[in-house]
Amino acid sequence: NLYFQGLKYMVPGARVTRGLDWKWRDQDGSPQGEGTVTGELHNGWIDVTWDAGGSNSYRMGAEGKFDLKLAP
């Protein structure tokens, strides 16, 4: 699974964008943008601060869902 392989790169400072299971509307800005991981992966959740200004926790394994992917 590509998403599980990418988890080791989901570290503080990593750049991310919305992924396969995104369901959080425009939390990442409008139009959709990139963000920066600000915390360690914990119980399948990870913290992100978006360039647009907001921050929140997103699923990276929790509930079998992956809200994020590494930015290109």
Rank of each mutant, 00 (worst) to 15 (best):
D67V: 02
D26W: 06
L41D: 03
P72C: 15
M10G: 03
A71M: 10
T38I: 13
A71I: 13
K69W: 12
E34H: 12
G29L: 05
K69I: 12
F66I: 06
T38K: 08
G13H: 05
A62T: 04
I46E: 00
S55T: 15
R15L: 02
G39L: 04
H42N: 13
F66V: 05
T38V: 12
M60H: 05
L68Q: 01
W24S: 08
Q32I: 09
Q27F: 06
L20C: 15
G13S: 04
V11M: 09
Q27N: 07
V37D: 01
V11E: 08
G35F: 02
G33L: 07
K8F: 10
T49K: 13
Y9D: 11
G19T: 06
W24N: 06
Q32N: 14
P72I: 13
L70W: 09
G35H: 01
I46S: 00
T17D: 01
N1Y: 08
Q32Y: 12
I46G: 00
D67L: 02
G33N: 05
N1M: 09
G6E: 15
T49H: 10
N43G: 10
K23H: 08
W22Q: 04
S55V: 11
R25N: 14
A52F: 09
V11A: 09
Y9L: 09
I46C: 05
A62E: 03
W22A: 05
D26H: 08
Y9T: 08
L41Y: 10
V48S: 00
A71V: 14
T17K: 13
G33W: 06
Y3I: 14
D21K: 03
R18A: 06
S55Q: 11
E34I: 14
Q32D: 10
S57P: 05
D51Q: 03
G35T: 01
A62F: 14
M60I: 05
T17S: 11
N56H: 13
V37F: 02
R15N: 01
V37P: 00
G19N: 08
P72F: 13
G29F: 05
R25M: 15
W45M: 06
Q27K: 05
D28V: 05
N43Q: 10
E40G: 11
T49D: 09
D21M: 03
G35E: 00
N56G: 15
L68H: 01
T17H: 07
F4I: 13
R18M: 08
K23P: 09
G29D: 08
R18S: 04
V37I: 13
V37W: 02
K65Q: 07
I46D: 00
T38M: 11
G53F: 02
E34Q: 13
E40A: 13
D47L: 14
R18E: 01
V48Q: 00
S55G: 09
Y9E: 12
N43V: 08
N56S: 11
G54E: 10
Y58S: 02
T17E: 10
G13M: 05
A71T: 11
G44N: 02
W24G: 08
R15S: 02
S57T: 11
R15I: 03
V48G: 00
D26S: 08
Y9Q: 09
T38H: 07
V11H: 09
I46K: 00
D51T: 03
P72G: 12
L2H: 15
G61V: 02
I46Q: 01
F66K: 03
V16M: 01
P12D: 08
L41F: 09
E63L: 08
G19V: 07
L7N: 08
P31Y: 08
F4W: 15
G61Y: 03
D67P: 01
G64R: 05
K65C: 15
A52W: 12
Y58H: 03
G53K: 02
K65N: 04
M10N: 01
Y58P: 01
G53D: 03
G29H: 06
K69H: 10
Q27W: 06
L41N: 06
L20Y: 12
R59Y: 03
M60L: 07
G53C: 06
A71H: 07
R15D: 02
G61D: 01
T49Y: 08
S57G: 06
A71D: 05
H42D: 10
V11N: 07
V48L: 01
L70H: 07
L41E: 06
Y58G: 01
I46V: 10
G6M: 15
W24A: 07
L7G: 08
D51H: 03
W24E: 06
S30P: 10
R25I: 10
G29R: 05
R59L: 03
T17R: 13
N56L: 05
D47H: 14
D51N: 01
G53Q: 02
Q5F: 10
T36K: 05
G39F: 04
G29A: 05
L2E: 15
R18F: 08
W24Q: 05
H42L: 12
A62N: 07
P72Y: 13
L41C: 11
D51M: 03
K23V: 12
G29W: 05
A71P: 04
D28K: 04
G53P: 00
D28H: 05
M10H: 03
T38S: 10
G44E: 01
A14D: 06
S55L: 09
G44F: 04
P31C: 14
K23F: 07
V11R: 09
H42I: 13
W45C: 04
D51Y: 02
D26C: 12
R25L: 15
L70F: 15
P72Q: 13
A14K: 05
Y9H: 12
A71C: 11
G61S: 04
S30R: 12
A62R: 04
E34L: 14
D28M: 04
R59S: 02
G29N: 06
G6W: 15
L41M: 09
F66W: 12
E63Y: 11
G19W: 06
D51E: 04
D67H: 02
H42G: 07
W45D: 00
G13W: 04
D26P: 05
G39I: 04
W24K: 04
L2A: 15
G35Q: 00
L70T: 06
D26G: 07
Q5T: 13
W22S: 04
Y3V: 14
E34T: 13
V48T: 00
G19F: 06
Y58F: 03
N43H: 13
N56A: 14
V37L: 07
E63F: 10
W50H: 00
Q5C: 15
M10V: 09
G35M: 03
Y9S: 09
D21C: 06
F4A: 13
D21Q: 03
R25T: 12
K8S: 10
K65R: 09
W50P: 00
R59N: 02
W22N: 04
E40N: 13
Q27Y: 06
G54S: 10
A14T: 11
A52R: 10
G35W: 02
S30W: 11
Y58A: 03
W22K: 04
E34V: 14
G44C: 04
A71N: 06
S30L: 11
L68Y: 00
G29I: 06
F66E: 03
S30N: 14
P31I: 09
D51V: 04
G39D: 07
Q27P: 06
G29P: 05
T17G: 07
A62Q: 05
T36Q: 06
M60N: 03
T36C: 11
L2R: 14
M60Q: 02
N1C: 15
W24F: 06
A52N: 12
W45N: 00
V11F: 09
Y3F: 14
Q32G: 14
P31M: 08
L41R: 07
F4S: 11
N1S: 10
M60S: 02
D47Y: 12
G6D: 15
S55K: 09
V11K: 12
M60T: 01
M60P: 01
E40I: 13
N43M: 11
D28S: 06
G44D: 01
K65L: 04
G29V: 06
N56D: 09
K65G: 05
